[in-house]
Nucleic acid binder design. Structure first.
Lengths: 140, 140
DNA sequence: TTTTTTAACTTGCAATTTGCAAGTTATTCG
DNA sequence: CGAATAACTTGCAAATTGCAAGTTAAAAAA
């Protein structure tokens, strides 16, 4: 596996540019949302998300995330047809990015479906919210 | 101006999905980096960034950011050929997203050109770093 | 045991977006 | 006034996304 890294040659040394080389598209962070915030694990789960990602795009994104060391992919011992996708530490470190995007979106989208009170809670105790998600992810 | 909003129909009410409708591409957050973190203001400045955005893409992204109320665009009174692009409050509220992306990228990119000590400083006093950038942006 | 169903992709092709570079128009400079 | 400049616009090729049918291995049903 993992021959999927560079889509384009490196554009600059900027850290944001580096991050966007991995996440700068309409789907990758949505996949990570399901993985990190919703605890989804299987291909089928990501496919079932409301936004309707296509199978070829999902496969591509999962492969890239694996190649960049953000997730790992193993065969499910209970059903060998299935694959389990899990975040690495590098992946878990993306929680703040996801939550800041969520907070911004929830605050500025008049039609948001964000959980009620999420923005206030995050603003009030950011670290506690982060810790909750980290704990959920470490329960394996 | 500002007829540039929806590229696609809304995919879901998820706040992250909403954010990605605006930023889910390889260029938009780079433009905002220059605007919010580097204080760039003119079309020419964004064009000159190291990553080499094309003029049609830059124009498209600026128009979308304006349509979403993230930036405003005015004619420069000192040279009417020029345009000044400035962040709105909605735009400034994206600083945490940008800085989290930068911190993640700086930490995980072995070839990073991030300013030395940035990651440590941000981890140590996130609010102070945010406040610095906000102050710089309000000096107009 | 065989057949059917299911999970995770893969593939072919059309539609959309990006990238490159030349072109256009209004404004400023020499 | 002509040349240069700022901010786009345009035409077209390359790359990516989206849709839906197809494939293969594993599990479930007959």
């Amino acid at each position: 596996m993992s021959a999927k890294k560079p889509r384009l040659p490196r554009r600059s040394g900027c850290p944001i540019s580096y991050s966007l080389e991995i996440f700068g598209d309409r789907w990758t962070l949505l996949v990570l949302r399901d993985l990190l915030l919703k605890g989804r694990r299987h291909f089928k789960d990501f496919l079932a998300a409301e936004e309707g990602i296509a199978t070829n795009i999902l496969t591509d994104r999962l492969q890239r995330l694996e190649a960049f060391g953000v997730i790992r992919r193993v065969r499910d011992p209970e059903d060998r047809r299935r694959r389990i996708y899990r975040p690495t530490d590098k992946g878990i470190a993306l929680l703040p990015v996801l939550l800041e995007l969520a907070a911004w979106g929830a605050h500025h989208d008049s039609g948001t479906a964000a959980p009620s009170g999420f923005v206030a809670r995050f603003a009030e105790d950011r670290e506690a919210v982060l810790e909750e998600f980290r704990r959920a992810l470490s329960e394996d």
